[in-house]
C-alpha cells in the first residue's frame, strides 16, 4: 500500500492573543493522496485557511504542534532553509485575491521567473523565458509573449489568477493548495479557472487541497471533503457521500442554508447563533452544541471524537444520531430566526 502524499497528524496551530495561545486549528488529522482533490469547507473563522498556511509554513508567529508529513517527512516547524527547498517546487499555493497576490511593481514574466530561478538556477535565462511563455499558454493566457512584459495592473482579475496559477504550477508541484481560488472572480471566469485547476491536476498527477466556503465549488471539484467548524474537522467523507448522506448537524445545516437552483425553498435554514470568535471558542465538549439549543444536552459526547460510520466516512460527536431541524418539529416553532 502506498503512503499518502500528505499526512497531517494531530495538527494544532495556535495564535497568541495577549498572554495566551488560542488554537485556530485544533487537533486536525487529514490525508491527501496523489491525483486527489481534498476540499476543506468551512465558514470564516473555521480555521481552514490557518490549516493551509500551516502546511505551507506561512504563519509568522503561530505555534504549530503535531506532524505534517509530506512524502513521509515532517515539514511542520521545518527550518526556513529546508522549507524553501520544497516550497514553490513540490509544494505550492494559489491565493485568493488575484488583485493583491502579485507584486504591483514587477513584470508578470519576472514574477514567474522568480519561482523557476529559485529552484532551477542552472537553467539559462533564455530557456526559462521560453518555458514561461509555454506556461502562460498552458494557463490559456492570450498573447503570452506580450503578457510576459506586462505589469499586473494591466491584466483583468481572471488573467491575474491565471498568472498566479502559472507561478504555482511552474515547477510541477506534487501538492497544490488552492485557498479560495475563485472567490474573487465572476461565475463564468470561476468555471474556467476550476476547469483549469482540474486539468492541471490530471496532467501533473498532483494532490490538491481546495479551501473554500462555496459548497457548489466543492461538489464540482472534490473527491473527498472535510468540513471544518471552530478549528476542528466535524465530518470527512467522499464527495458523493457528503452531499447525499450528510451526517453532522453542521454539515446538514450548511447544506440547507444555501439557495439551490434545482428546487424551490420557501425559507432557507438559518443556523442559530453566531460563529464564536477564536478567543471564545468552546474548548470542552461538542463545539457545535451551542448552535442547536433545541437538541438535548446529553446526546453529546464529553470528548467528541471522529467516528467512522461507514468506510471513509467520519463524523464527530454522537449528536448526529439525534439531530433534527427545528422546522421538522411542531413544538419547536417558537424558535424564531430573527433572534440571533
Amino acid at each position: 500500500m502506498s503512503n499518502p502524499l500528505l499526512e497531517i497528524k494531530n495538527l494544532k496551530t495556535s495564535f497568541r492573543i495577549g498572554e495566551e495561545y488560542y488554537a485556530a486549528v485544533d487537533d486536525v488529522s487529514l490525508t491527501v493522496n496523489e491525483n486527489e482533490v481534498l476540499a476543506i469547507v468551512g465558514e470564516s473563522g473555521s480555521g481552514k485557511s490557518a490549516l493551509a498556511f500551516s502546511v505551507m509554513g506561512l504563519h509568522n508567529r503561530a505555534k504549530i504542534e503535531g506532524e505534517i508529513l509530506f512524502k513521509g517527512n515532517d515539514i511542520a516547524n521545518l527550518p526556513p532553509k529546508k522549507l524553501n527547498k520544497i516550497r514553490g517546487k513540490e509544494l505550492s499555493m494559489i491565493f485568493q485575491d488575484p488583485l493583491t497576490a502579485l507584486n504591483p511593481l514587477m513584470e508578470v514574466g519576472r514574477q514567474i521567473d522568480e519561482v523557476l530561478f529559485l529552484h532551477n538556477s542552472k537553467l539559462p535565462k533564455a530557456k526559462r523565458k521560453e518555458y514561461i511563455v509555454e506556461l502562460l499558454e498552458r494557463v490559456e493566457i492570450p498573447r503570452p509573449e506580450h503578457v510576459y512584459n506586462q505589469f499586473p495592473h494591466e491584466l483583468s482579475g481572471g488573467m491575474r489568477q491565471r498568472v498566479i496559477i502559472a507561478i504555482a504550477i511552474a515547477n510541477q508541484p506534487e501538492l497544490l493548495i488552492a485557498d479560495e481560488p475563485t472567490t474573487a472572480l465572476d461565475v463564468t471566469i470561476q468555471a474556467q479557472i476550476l476547469d483549469l485547476i482540474r486539468e492541471l491536476k490530471n496532467d501533473l498527477n498532483s494532490g490538491v487541497i481546495l479551501i473554500t466556503h462555496d459548497l457548489g465549488v466543492v461538489a464540482e471539484m472534490a473527491d473527498r471533503v472535510a468540513v471544518m467548524y471552530a478549528g476542528q474537522i466535524v465530518e470527512v467523507a467522499d464527495v458523493d457521500m457528503l452531499f447525499n448522506n450528510p451526517q453532522h448537524p453542521y454539515t446538514r445545516s450548511l447544506l440547507s442554508s444555501i439557495p439551490l437552483l434545482e428546487d424551490e425553498q420557501d425559507r432557507l435554514h438559518v443556523i442559530h447563533g453566531i460563529v464564536p470568535s477564536l478567543k471564545n471558542l468552546p474548548r470542552e465538549g461538542c463545539r457545535f452544541s451551542a448552535r442547536m439549543p433545541w437538541i438535548d444536552d446529553d446526546v453529546h459526547e464529553e470528548h467528541p471524537e471522529l467516528h467512522e460510520i461507514s468506510p471513509g466516512h467520519f463524523v464527530r460527536c454522537t449528536c448526529y444520531k439525534h439531530f433534527y431541524f427545528p422546522e421538522e418539529n411542531k413544538e419547536d416553532q417558537s424558535h424564531d430566526i430573527t433572534q440571533s
Partner: peptide, 15 residues
Amino acid sequence: QKDFILTARAKGAPE
C-alpha cells in the same frame, strides 16, 4: 503585510 509577500514566500524565496 501585503499578500504578494506571501506569494514570494510560497515560491520558496529565502527571507
